[in-house]
Design a protein around this nucleic acid. Structure first.
Lengths: 240, 240
DNA sequence: GTCGGCAATATTGTCAACAATATTGTCCGG
DNA sequence: CCGGACAATATTGTTGACAATATTGCCGAC
């Protein structure tokens, strides 16, 4: 059983802000820090799609000026995480089913490319730790349905791949795509049987990596994403 | 403490800007319009990489406030077209050879995906006009080395494909990637033999599209991009 | 003459007040 | 009781002035 850490539920209206609610951590923070903080909240599910993001409330909460919040919201809009209209509060972007499939279609390609590039850039032996990881701890997590630990390791797995792929723009795009579907994909992992199948598929991927077969690793990774998509399709009512 | 004399020209702000260099076209334009205008200038080569983009100068030129320029520059930074550092002027982003290859690697995948999705979404007969285009006018442009007309048509070809692919996020990403390499890729077309080879390759692509073979069209389009990359590699000293 | 420091200038970053607009609440007639 | 017009409030958009910082030009020591 897994519980996402239930942060303070700001709910719909946190208009009246007393000094207690100010988060001193971001006092006078840089723009990037604010962007990153908001990004985390949105991707982590603390701010649900449709939530109004009011500039003054956020400004007081973060202890920064309103313009900085405005800039952050603009950046997040470019990133696709929030929607903005003139003279209306920004809201956390909603993602319909078509959007999810569009992103998964892209991720199928790009995650595949990512793993192939990683294999091409590193000696095959260097992937042994992933074989061990997926046959040891990860298999155990799957048995125990330990979704949280599984997700943490998968995240590191992906981070290692993007690092090895050594393509900053691919990196950036994958980061964006993952952000926009993180909620849904993470919940997919909790579906019955998904985590076990996921581990099985990724075991094949890392095996191909270990043997230095980039093309095969790419094919298997794409298959892995397609399998994810099948789960989303099947359980769409539950996920959205 | 300064006195506010009550000038309430709400409709028309009587700014004391010399009218010489102002471009009245953008007077009071929306943020998106400013972003688009700057984007065009950068992609079109009017603003070369490394050019300083000073906020006040741009603000006066476009006849908009400085904050709007700031917002536009922030958006273009997210898009990868400009670089910004704290307390320094934004500059048009420089792209090194590695960056070009990174982008071409991505484009190889995504343009391929794009053409495959387009084929899957439309009846094969609907592509007849492309067969005609590439065997008629485009072949002529190649013979005459009419690079300009060729580029215009290729641009429309790409626009049609992205429209048919019907994946807004893919659209957005391809648009971004094309923007960042437009200068270099356009110049590639002028290299000896490139335009003829390009037409030949694209003739094969549209033939596959016309026969409804999405997978083959994808493969051929990827080959086409790889061929572009080979030209860039070969003539890198001239191009950069 | 050249280099390093120092003042002068130019440019971006920040802030608070104000304007424009949307949202909410209220009142009245049906 | 309901709906629509209208006022009150809340929220975003814009402006200009000011502060912080980088760049440039200058001067003197060596």
């Amino acid at each position: 059983m897994q519980t996402f850490d239930s942060k303070r539920e700001t709910g719909s209206t946190a208009t009246v802000v007393t000094a207690d609610e100010r988060d001193p951590e971001f006092e006078g923070s840089t723009l990037e820090a604010v962007i990153e903080a908001l990004r985390r909240r949105i991707c982590g599910g603390a701010l649900k799609p449709g939530t109004r993001l009011q500039e003054v409330a956020l400004a007081e909460e973060f202890g920064v000026s309103r313009v900085r919040i405005r800039d952050a919201l603009l950046a997040l809009q470019q990133r696709g995480l929030v929607d903005r209209q003139k003279n209306r509060s920004a809201i956390v972007a909603r993602l319909d089913l078509k959007g999810v499939f569009e992103i998964l279609e892209l991720r199928e390609n790009l995650e595949g490319l990512c793993v192939r590039l990683a294999v091409e850039n590193r000696p095959a032996e260097s992937w042994q730790y992933l074989v061990d990881l997926f046959q040891g701890p990860m298999a155990r997590y799957a048995e125990e349905n330990n979704v949280e630990a599984y997700l943490v390791e998968v995240e590191r797995f992906r981070a290692d791949l993007t690092l090895a792929a050594d393509n900053s723009i691919l990196n950036e795009m994958l980061s964006m795509l993952r952000d926009r579907t993180r909620n849904i994909v993470d919940r997919t992992t909790m579906l019955p049987g998904r985590i076990q199948q996921g581990v099985k598929e990724l075991q094949l991927v890392v095996a191909a990596m270990r043997s230095g077969d980039g093309a095969e690793a790419e094919r298997l990774r794409r298959e892995n994403i397609r399998s994810q998509r099948a789960f989303v399709q099947r359980y769409q009512n539950f996920l959205l």
